[in-house]
Design a binder for these strands. Structure first.
Length: 469
RNA sequence: GGCGAGGUAGCAAAGUGGUAAUGCACUGGUCUGCAAAACCGGUAUGCGCGGGUUCAAUUCCCGCCCUCGCCUCCA
């Protein structure tokens, strides 16, 4: 059952098959490492992670490349503001990014190339583009891509009918001195000549000291690690134009290949029904959600709970719902383990009773639909009435899906080690004694006291548990 | 203005030419001294609004309203 995925370029769902028949090669635009990534950034990376997991669970190998943008306007500006070298500054934020990725259970890309470490590759590509008449140098030491030289420009973003050079933003930036040197306002920078505000961040090139333009790094590094033609290229929807449009132009003009065969774009996350912004106080990172008591696993669940091409409205309440949903899964897992006797990691090559969910997942990565199917199967499965073999089969299928979604089950609330303060423990013990002597009135008073203090009592046949409310 | 995505129960979110998955929340019951947990149920005659096509539309077509994104360096 091959995965079908919507392709931005053709605007159709197409089966994902590897060009070489065995390894699916894909490139994802990674983060600009100049600050903490927010949950909106992670929606894209998590969606790409599910994509990779579904491909791998389906039996194919993958070659996943995701770059680090560690030389651009923002990294240069903010490193200087922080009084740090570009290297030290971006290393810090790269490490933070990796920590967050691990917390979200994201598989590590096979290659994670750094832009600043591939400047020679970028220079070589610029030389080729100039040789072929697709780029030109200007007196200030910059090099621009000549958009008019590439007939297909605008195909991905479907802006071919638009007068690109009349864009509002470029009109506003026309006062920028180096904009004057371009032949056309639509042309974009491949190499930026050295400027005073860049400080020590400049490199030698045939056109003098300077630094690479942003779009170029992805073309140069995908060529280096994936070749002229590869299977899938992904990123957030905001990258369709101009970033991916420019990548296509650079790569197709610098090589004889067709570049990416399939474009995979993830729609933006919304927060509380609108845009996430620091001024609105809804700018969330894993760190500040953790300080509110939410785990990365809960964040991941919320991020995958909407289809990747539909705007997802993130709220704190949705994190509460995710927590309960994960608890429900963990209880199901526990019940099956008790019957099957299985412990530790459970692996499987097939979805078993969860075939419907697996099929849904392979239909354009319909994660919310698959979650619905999973709960449907959970709800109709009576673990206690299954034989050991049956329970084993269900558990294996369940974990096949969990692995495809990258979900790790939480420790059940009942089983989490909870420190009970001495005074609470004392009240609970008194209540138990009252209950044993069938003094229901006294027992209820004590239960209410505990409840007011934020604790609940859970009785069983021969004892009780004190749990946080 | 152009291009794109979306408007489904209190919240979140799938889906379909034949009358609406799922999670949370709420709620009835079984169980329990009472609870909790668990289990069995209930909760949109309705899918932005108005037309049209059809035996039948939430699902197709047309128009409108609203939200969000992009329109040169934002995942």
């Amino acid at each position: 059952m091959p995965l079908t995925l919507h392709d931005t370029l053709s605007r159709t769902a197409r089966a994902i098959t590897p060009l070489d028949g065995k390894t699916l090669r894909f490139y994802c635009c990674g983060p600009t490492v100049y600050g903490p990534a927010h949950i909106g950034n992670f929606r894209t990376f998590v969606a790409q992670d599910v994509f990779r997991r579904v491909i791998e669970q389906g039996g194919l190998a993958t070659l996943h490349v995701r770059n680090l943008t560690d030389v651009d306007d923002k990294t240069i500006r903010d490193s200087q503001k922080a009084g740090q070298s570009l290297t030290d500054f971006t290393r810090h934020w790269t490490e933070k990014f990796h920590t967050d990725c691990a917390a979200l259970n994201l598989l590590t890309p096979h290659v994670e190339p750094s832009a600043v470490a591939h400047i020679p590759h970028q220079i070589r590509m610029i030389e080729t583009l100039i040789e072929r008449g697709h780029a030109y140098a200007t007196p200030d030491g910059s090099v621009y891509f000549k958009v008019a030289s590439f007939a297909d420009y605008g195909r991905l973003s479907h802006l071919e009918d638009r007068e690109l050079k009349l864009g509002a933003s470029s009109a506003a930036s026309a006062t920028d001195s180096d904009e004057y040197t371009k032949d056309s306002l639509a042309d974009f920078a491949l190499w930026k000549g050295k400027k005073a505000e860049d400080g020590p961040n400049h490199w030698s090139s045939p056109w003098g000291e300077g630094r690479p333009g942003w779009h170029l790094e992805c073309s140069a590094m995908s060529l280096e690690y994936l070749g002229e033609d590869f299977d899938v290229h992904g990123g957030g929807v905001d990258l369709i134009f101009p970033h991916h449009e420019n990548e296509i132009a650079q790569s197709c003009c610098a090589t004889h290949g067709k570049f990416a065969r399939h474009w995979f774009h993830v729609t933006h996350l919304m927060v509380d029904g609108g845009k996430m912004a620091k001024t609105l106080g809804n700018f969330y990172t894993l760190e500040n959600l953790a300080s509110r008591g939410y785990s990365p696993a809960e964040v991941r669940y919320v991020l995958i709970s909407g289809h990747y091409r539909t705007p997802l409205n993130f709220t704190l309440h949705s994190l509460d719902a995710a927590r309960q949903a994960l608890q429900k899964m963990a209880k199901f897992d526990k019940a099956l383990r008790e019957v099957s006797g299985l412990t530790g990691d459970v692996t499987s090559d097939e979805p078993g009773p969860f075939a419907a969910a697996w099929e849904t997942l392979n239909d354009d990565l319909n994660v919310p639909g698959a979650l619905g199917d999973i709960f449907g199967t959970i709800n109709k499965t009576k673990a206690a009435s299954l034989s050991k073999d049956e329970a084993t089969a269900v558990l294996k299928g369940f974990h096949f899906l969990l692995r495809a979604l990258g979900l790790k089950l939480p420790v059940l609330v009942d089983e989490a080690a909870t420190e009970v303060p001495a005074d609470i423990a004392e009240l609970a013990e008194k209540r138990w004694e009252a209950k044993q002597s069938k003094d229901w009135a006294a027992a209820d008073v004590l239960r209410k006291e505990l409840d007011a203090a934020g604790w609940i009592i859970k009785d069983s046949k021969d004892g009780y548990q004190v749990l946080r409310k």
